[in-house]
């Protein structure tokens, strides 16, 4: 028996909006500690890891570990039918091949049940080793989204370089080049508006902007984004979900041959 009641149902709607274009089908893993997902995009260039911890749910019952294969496009269709203020409850019986999404309006005057078919998905679970990153940049998520969008109108790839001067996002295309430098800035009114750069070593890596723009769809989940970079490792683009967990995107760099 599985029963997860999320008062802030809009969080789940935002999570699906953030990952549905990157991954078609995925297994949601439910255990006593939380609701999680790990999946790669179809070309195995990017990986998404989601964690929603049990304590973030108003009610969390998961009698035994369960893996539920879902088509994220179909799941998103169902969650779009929930109002932004609705309470969302996920329910599944042991051995069932369906999951039920229950949507309750805040004043309980409308209750909807949507039952979705589960699917068998052969997915490969990858071990993500703990890594010491050369540089970690925390910045407003909207700023990062803006930079990725702007640069993708000039070029297809972004070079992210961290030096003691700051973090530089560069691209080049047929029409010209673009460089955007963000310096550390902690003298802001609100902590979420700060840009904080922790650098152990300078680092410079090249990534496909198409993926960065896909990750930026998680912007509504968090005011800030954390970008962790090390040479010869996938970049981690993390959106923390307040009091609950995170969505982390890993993207393999482009490599000089």
């Amino acid at each position: 028996m599985l029963e997860l009641r999320l008062v802030q149902g809009s969080l789940l709607k935002k999570v699906l909006e953030a990952i549905k274009d990157l991954v078609n089908d995925a297994n949601f893993d439910c255990s006593a500690t939380g609701f999680s997902l790990q999946a790669m995009d179809s070309s195995h260039v990017a990986l998404v890891a989601l964690l929603l911890r049990n304590e973030g749910f108003e009610h969390y019952r998961c009698d035994r570990n369960i893996s539920m294969g879902m088509n994220l496009g179909n799941m998103n269709k169902m969650l779009k039918c929930a109002g932004n203020d609705d309470i969302i409850t996920l329910k599944a019986d042991d051995g069932s091949d369906t999951v039920t999404f229950m949507f309750e309006s805040p004043n309980q005057d409308k209750i909807a049940d949507f039952e979705m078919k589960l699917m068998d998905i052969d997915s490969e679970h990858l071990g993500i080793p703990e890594a010491e990153y050369h540089a970690i940049v925390r910045m407003p998520s909207a700023e990062f989204a803006r930079i990725c969008k702007d640069l993708s109108s000039i070029g297809d790839t972004v070079v992210i370089s961290v030096t003691k001067e700051g973090v530089k996002f560069s691209t080049k295309g047929d029409i010209g080049t673009a460089n955007i430098v963000c310096r550390q800035n902690t003298t802001v009114d609100k902590p979420e508006e700060a840009t904080v750069i922790e650098m152990k070593e300078p680092v410079s890596l090249t990534f496909a902007l198409r993926y960065m723009n896909s990750f930026a769809k998680a912007t509504p989940l968090s005011h800030t984004v954390t970008i962790s970079l090390s040479s010869e490792l996938p970049v981690v683009v993390e959106y923390k979900i307040e009091d609950m967990g995170y969505v982390r995107f890993y993207l393999a760099p482009k490599i000089e041959e």
């Binding site: 260039v45 990017a46 679970h125 990858l126 790839t157 090249t206 890993y250 393999a252 482009k254 490599i255």
Partner: peptide, 14 residues
């Protein structure tokens, strides 16, 4: 020449 890396060459199956 620049080639797109594959995530599975960094993280191994468990």
């Amino acid at each position: 020449d620049v080639k797109q890396g594959n995530i599975m060459s960094f993280f191994k199956k468990v």
